[in-house]
Simulated assay, not measured.
Amino acid sequence: MKIILERNLDFKQFQNLIALTFVTGMMFLGMVNSVDFKSYYSFEIILFFLTAIFISILFTKKGLFIENHKLYNVVFLFGFKLRKTLIEISDFQQLFVTQGNLSTNYAYTYNIKALRNWEPDLNYSIRCFNIFTADENKTNKKKILTLTKPEKVKLAIDFIVKNTKLNY
């Protein structure tokens, strides 16, 4: 059983990858249409594969997968499993969710005081929900998944509770 939840990349990663895909795609199309194919064919092939890889990364999604009563954290591409990671849940009895902020800061400078006044604030922060497993006393816990949409958190918890022995 599987459940595909949400995009694997956060908004800034997605935005940066779209720009990178556009640049490599335009370079590939420009080279194919303007330069003799035989002279730079290896570079054109590399650009084609890079563009294809970037486009496929844009469509990856994260989710959960259960096989033989084992829980896996999975990255999907069009419903196919690309990577799965086993989440050991045999020592745990319950689930809980914590709420926080997922933040990235793309700062330009560190110690150059003259440039710090003109440096834009590129901090991007969104609300996120972490799903954890824990033992009865909540002394031992392990993270399962980080999601950004509350409705997807509810779907993930329902899926885990329905298909494993964990309680919420």
Rank of each mutant, 00 (worst) to 15 (best):
K141A: 09
N137Y: 09
K138D: 11
I160L: 07
I144R: 00
K162G: 07
K141E: 13
T139C: 12
K154A: 10
T146L: 03
L155M: 12
E136Y: 13
I157K: 02
I144P: 02
D158A: 10
K154N: 11
T133Q: 02
V153F: 03
K154I: 11
K162M: 13
A156V: 06
K165R: 03
A134P: 03
K154D: 12
K149C: 10
F159R: 12
L145W: 05
L147T: 07
K149Q: 15
K152W: 05
E136K: 13
N140P: 11
I157L: 14
T139N: 15
P150G: 08
V153R: 03
L155K: 15
T164V: 07
A134E: 11
I157P: 00
P150H: 08
E151I: 06
L155F: 06
P150T: 05
N140L: 07
L147Y: 07
K142R: 04
V161L: 09
K142M: 04
K138L: 09
F159T: 10
L147W: 07
N163M: 01
A156S: 11
T146Q: 00
D158P: 06
K143V: 04
T164S: 11
F159D: 11
I157F: 06
V161H: 04
I144V: 06
K138H: 10
D158Y: 01
D135Y: 05
K138E: 12
P150V: 05
T164R: 00
K162V: 05
T164G: 01
E151A: 12
E136T: 08
A134N: 01
F159W: 12
T139K: 10
I157G: 00
I160K: 01
K149V: 10
K138W: 06
K141M: 12
K165Y: 04
K152P: 13
K162L: 15
K162H: 09
E136M: 11
L147S: 09
I160E: 00
N140C: 08
D158K: 11
K143N: 03
F159G: 14
K165S: 06
N137E: 14
T139M: 13
K143L: 15
K143A: 08
V153K: 05
L155G: 06
A134I: 05
T148H: 05
E136L: 10
V161Y: 01
K154M: 08
T148E: 12
N137Q: 14
T148R: 12
V153H: 06
F159C: 11
N163F: 02
T139E: 15
V161S: 08
K154Q: 14
K138R: 13
K152M: 13
N163T: 01
F159L: 10
K152Y: 07
D135M: 01
L147K: 07
I144E: 01
N140M: 08
D135E: 10
K165D: 06
A156K: 08
V153E: 01
V153W: 03
K152E: 13
A134S: 15
L145Y: 03
K142C: 05
K152V: 07
N163Y: 03
K138Q: 14
N163S: 03
L155D: 15
I144W: 01
T164L: 02
K143D: 08
T164A: 03
L155Q: 14
D158T: 09
D135F: 08
L145M: 15
E151G: 07
L155H: 09
T139H: 15
